[in-house]
Structures are given as structure tokens and as C-alpha cells.
């Protein structure tokens, strides 16, 4: 396949960037999207041009390191991570634009690489259960209803990629936040800190410069792990209850 690419190039943090056009003449439909960029980068280097910087690590859709806005969609046209997108989703002659996540809370570091450390700081604010190593009771001491365990698991599959933020017109991270609040809130182990957790995490979220939720739902559509929108309802439910209790 022959593909034309328009890629965001930016030399460093805070510098001006621009879209640059490249062509790829020999793209196989079995290539992953990132392998297509690998091939481009090899060609650029052979021509003496600096390769395009982009993040990726596991390339099996689970580490959350990759993330590109492809033709205006976070992770592109399929419901999956960028690394699991394959060129068979495109056709000969296509023109593809590739941009980094765009959000004030995710500043661009170079080309398509952004800084997502804000997510780590939201987790630091309360996205955990406080149990020191060695202090745990026997695992079967607290049975968990299967339905609750399954819902906790579904929420816990969030990979922290940031697609929800990239897709949201307000650049809110509510799906990310709601997923963690739901994961820990569904389990008996998560109850003691439940009320405090939601307030602390939300405060950090706002402090990082993410926007507010206006129930658009673009986040859930873009989520490669299909985290359901109802985790945001759960977040709101938990928040109301917590505030009613004086948090």
C-alpha cells in the first residue's frame, strides 16, 4: 500500500512544532501501525534525517506507553491501543495524520512523546490500599462476591495510557479516575479509605490542570480497554457520599 503521513514534529518541550508530510510506498497490511513508523524511521535515518520520536514499549497493548492521535482519534480507528492497530485498518492511498495527545496536563516533550506523570501523581494522592508488606491477612479471610470482583477487575484493566484525556473535549481524566475509584471501591479491602480516596484523587486531578466532566462519553469510546462510562457515575456517587459525610 502507498500511504501519505502527516506527522507532528516538535524539537523539544515548549518549542513550536509543525506538521510534516512523509510518504510510505511499501506498506504491508500485516504491519502494526508502529512498525510502519519503525520503517519510516529507518528510512529517515538513512537519508540523514532525525527519526520521529514516539513512545512504545510492550507492543502488546498492555503497558499503556504508546498513544497517538491518528486522524483525530485517540489510538486511531479501532478500539485498541496504537501498538495493536494494524495497517489492514487502512487502505492504499490513505492520508493519515499523526499527532501527540493534546492536553495542558500532558505537555509535549518531543514530536509525539508527552509527559503523563500527572497520572502517577493522581495515584499518589490516594489510588492505593494502605497495607504494608507482611501485614496482610490470609487471602480467603474475606470472600468477595463474584459480581463485585468482576466489576473491580474490569475497572482495574485501565492501562493509564491517557486516551480518555486525549479524546475528551475538556481534557478531563475522569474515566481514569473513575476506574481506580471503582476498582478499589468494589472490594472489601478498599472500604476503609474509600471516602477519603475519592476526594484526594479528585483534588489532585483538578490541580494537575485536567478539565471537568460534562458527560460527553468520548473517553469511554476511545478507551482501548473498554472501561465503561459508568465508572464516572460511580465516581460521582462516591464523591457525593463522601462529601455528605463531611470529607
Amino acid at each position: 500500500m502507498k500511504i501519505t503521513l502527516e506527522i507532528w514534529r516538535q524539537a523539544g518541550p515548549g518549542t513550536a512544532g509543525k506538521m510534516v508530510t512523509y510518504t510510505q510506498d511499501d506498506v504491508s497490511p500485516d504491519m502494526s501501525f508502529l512498525e510502519m513508523l519503525d520503517v519510516l524511521n529507518e528510512q529517515l535515518q538513512e537519508r540523514g534525517e532525525e527519526p520521529v520520536a514516539f513512545d512504545s514499549d510492550c507492543r502488546e497493548g498492555i503497558c499503556g506507553m504508546c498513544g497517538l492521535v491518528i486522524n483525530g482519534q485517540a489510538h486511531g480507528p479501532q478500539v485498541t491501543t496504537t501498538c495493536q492497530l494494524h495497517m489492514r485498518s487502512f487502505k492504499d492511498g490513505d492520508r493519515i495524520t499523526i499527532e501527540p495527545w493534546r492536553a495542558d496536563a500532558f505537555p509535549v516533550l518531543k514530536d509525539l512523546v508527552v509527559d503523563r506523570s500527572a497520572f502517577d501523581r493522581i495515584i499518589q494522592a490516594g489510588g492505593f490500599i494502605s497495607v504494608n508488606t507482611g501485614a496482610a491477612p490470609e487471602a480467603h479471610a474475606a470472600p468477595v462476591q463474584k459480581a463485585k470482583a468482576d466489576r473491580a477487575f474490569d475497572a482495574a484493566t485501565c492501562i493509564g495510557c491517557g486516551a480518555c484525556v486525549a479524546a475528551c473535549p475538556n481534557a478531563a481524566a475522569m474515566l481514569f479516575l473513575g476506574a481506580k475509584v471503582t476498582h478499589l471501591g468494589e472490594l472489601p479491602q478498599g472500604q476503609p479509605e474509600r471516602d477519603a480516596r475519592v476526594v484526594k484523587m479528585l483534588t489532585q486531578h483538578d490541580h494537575e490542570g485536567f478539565g471537568g466532566c460534562t458527560n460527553v462519553g468520548a473517553c469511554a469510546d476511545a478507551c482501548p480497554k473498554e472501561i465503561p462510562l459508568d465508572v464516572i457515575s460511580q465516581l460521582n456517587t462516591d464523591l457525593r457520599r463522601s462529601m455528605a459525610r463531611g470529607n
Partner: peptide, 10 residues
């Protein structure tokens, strides 16, 4: 396993 369950590993 005990430790992970206590941390909320589903």
C-alpha cells in the same frame, strides 16, 4: 497471594 489480595488485586 495474601499480600496481593490485601492490596486489592482482583
Amino acid at each position: 497471594i495474601d499480600q496481593c489480595v490485601a492490596q486489592g488485586v482482583p
